Amino acid sequence: MAHATAQGASLLNGFKRPGRFDKGLGAQLPDAYKKFWREWKLTKPAAVHYIPKESEWERDEVTHAIKPVQNMPLPLIDTPESHQGIWGGEAVIKGFQKRHQTKRRVPHFWVPTLRRSVVHSQVLNEYMSVVVTERTLEQIHECHGFDHYLLKNMACDLRSALALKLKREVLKALQQGCPAWAAEPKQQEEVLKEYNKYLASYTPEEIDWYGHTFPEAIRKLRNEIQAAEKVLPHKLEFRSKLIESLREAGIKEAGKLDSKEALPNVEHKDADIEALTKLESTTSSSSWLSKMNPFGKKET
């Protein structure tokens, strides 16, 4: 029985499958990235493909029966092409369509109308050619600029990986003081005055981890771990052990190898070979290396 075991109380509601943040490198990701992930994937986005009803109850027009209002969002499909453009929250919808009254319904995909347009980022001082929808252009005009559109909307409403990366670049540029306008201090001051208010919602760590997909975040974390833990090549490790063992045996020439740098260098290869050759050819009677080496010079 479940209550007879120590973990029975936690198993009464069923076994919880570990998520992507519960195992492996995903468990080591910082809270800044988890906050972005919740904003991107777990937050309910704004209604795009349906009109939500504000009331909780409604009356049926035919039967006049009162029934509760259910604002159920449509299931959306984010294709790889949607992450290469900025679709303004739109996506592909899969459903069925009855094209003839006397025939069965058939599967159908509703794809938004796409067009290529040029957008301008005032913070980055760049013009970009991207694939957008009509809704994207309308939202950019409503927000009075492409930068305002990126900074005002949440990650769940932007949806696109490209839009999130551009938002991260804009936030980093604002954090660094708009280096793109360094040649024009007056314009730089005006841009900072207009967009600096958006930095209050993010910390430097959150800006650094913002806009990364999960594989990109894992790759970024792995690179940081490898940079923090400098791996010493086995060649240098074994050479240092050899030098210590020779020094304990009382060989004076072993001290010459200790003066070399720890990192491998092409210029030191010949010096290492020459020093080891001298060690092998030592004719001292107290050297065990000369006695064990059959190719060494023998005393006459």
Rank of each mutant, 00 (worst) to 15 (best):
E134W: 04
M154A: 04
K152E: 12
V111L: 13
Q101G: 03
V131S: 03
R104L: 03
L114E: 07
Q175I: 00
Y127S: 10
C178G: 03
G177C: 11
H141P: 01
E134C: 04
S117N: 14
A163H: 07
S121I: 08
V170K: 12
L164G: 08
A161N: 14
S129K: 13
A180P: 11
V130D: 01
R115D: 05
C156P: 04
T136F: 02
E169R: 15
L162M: 12
E142Y: 07
L150M: 11
F146M: 08
A173S: 15
F109H: 12
S160V: 08
A163M: 13
L151E: 07
I140L: 02
L137P: 09
L137Q: 10
A173P: 05
K165I: 07
C156D: 03
L150N: 10
V123G: 03
E142W: 04
Y149P: 00
C156Q: 13
R105S: 15
S117A: 11
P179A: 06
A155Y: 04
L171Y: 03
L137E: 09
A155R: 06
V106A: 08
C143N: 13
L174I: 15
R168I: 09
V111R: 15
S160M: 07
K103R: 14
L124K: 03
E134P: 00
V132R: 08
L124M: 13
S117T: 10
T136G: 09
E138N: 14
L114Y: 10
H144T: 13
Y127R: 09
N153V: 04
K152A: 06
W110K: 09
F109N: 12
H144Y: 08
L164I: 09
L137W: 01
I140A: 00
N125K: 15
V170W: 06
Q175K: 02
Y127T: 04
P112R: 02
T133W: 06
Y127D: 04
V123R: 00
S160D: 01
Q175F: 01
M128K: 10
A163K: 09
S121G: 06
T136D: 09
V106T: 11
V123L: 01
V131F: 00
V106W: 00
L174Y: 03
L151W: 06
L171D: 11
P179S: 07
H144A: 11
T113A: 04
Q139W: 05
S121Y: 00
R116S: 12
A163G: 13
L151P: 04
L114H: 07
C143M: 13
T102L: 09
S117Y: 09
H148A: 13
V119Y: 00
W110P: 01
E138K: 15
H141K: 13
